[in-house]
């Protein structure tokens, strides 16, 4: 088989004395949902930030589509097809849902140095944006400003924006965070549909979602990958149970 879609090789990152990423190596294949789980503060978001380019690792290599992207800016990586959703919803509040998605379409199709034609009337942008909104079930709310959407709807919008980028890989940081059971149900269905088309690195605390969606699971604890394997294997792994799952299941 060719190189994986995304590959991390021996990443390290410290904040002062705190090692948040310690010799992390993992891969993401095309068409795979690879879940990344771990207790609070394990370093999941920090890892996503290094992959997306928001933070630079201290050492190690990030390879995407067979090329070293470790030193590329966030914008460059995004243009190559690495899309990211944020743990804390990050949209353009005054833009409508449609315009949020249309901006993502615009970013990947042609130059944005176009000065005179009204962007809101570019049918090609609007159609692709609407398709992305439809995919996440947000089309009926397309013309509301993002600030007026419910929390769950903004999570959907976050996902629609990522899809509108037509990425090769999706980095999703807790897409279900703060959603109610019904919204979570719907998002899980959407993600399952997306899984076959993209490589998805899914950070998620909701174990139901993780075990329903992922083909592979990696467990991060104190910055280190302590296990990688099938969902069933991870569930049975005593090291993982001790570090993480034990507490969770105890609560549930």
């Amino acid at each position: 088989m060719a190189e994986p879609l995304l590959e991390l090789r021996g990443l390290n990152k410290s904040f002062g004395g705190l090692r948040v990423t310690e010799n992390v190596s993992l891969t993401l294949e095309a068409g795979e949902i690879h879940a990344l789980i771990g207790p609070n503060g394990a370093g999941k978001t920090t890892l996503i930030q290094q992959i997306s380019g928001a933070l630079a690792p201290d050492s190690g290599e990030i390879r995407f589509l067979g090329e070293d992207v470790t030193r590329l800016s966030m914008a460059r990586r995004a243009r190559r097809g690495l899309a990211r959703s944020f743990q804390i919803t990050s949209v353009i509040p005054s833009f409508s849902a449609l315009e949020n998605a249309a901006l993502a379409v615009q970013a990947r199709s042609g130059s944005s140095f176009r000065f005179f034609r009204p962007a809101a009337r570019e049918a090609a942008l609007n159609e692709a944006a609407m398709a992305a909104l439809e995919e996440v079930g947000l089309a009926p709310r397309a013309h509301l400003p993002a600030a007026a959407l419910s929390h769950g709807e903004r999570r959907q919008l976050e996902l629609a924006i990522a899809l509108a980028m037509r990425p090769r890989a999706l980095l999703l940081d807790e897409p279900l965070a703060g959603t109610g059971p019904e919204e979570a149900e719907r998002l899980i269905r959407i993600l399952r549909g997306l899984g076959a088309r993209y490589g998805i690195l899914l950070v998620e605390h909701d174990m139901r979602a993780v075990f329903a969606l992922a083909q592979r699971v990696s467990v991060l604890a104190q910055g280190r990958v302590i296990a990688t394997g099938s969902p069933a294997g991870i569930r049975a792994d005593p090291v993982v149970r001790a570090a993480y799952l034990g507490e969770e299941e105890g609560e549930g």
């Binding site: 997306s52 800016s73 914008a75 460059r76 990211r84 970013a107 990947r108 944005s112 924006i161 980028m165």
Partner: peptide, 13 residues
Amino acid sequence: RENETRVRALGLE
């Protein structure tokens, strides 16, 4: 102006 990080994450500097 509203969300610089989001714009970068979309691939626009």
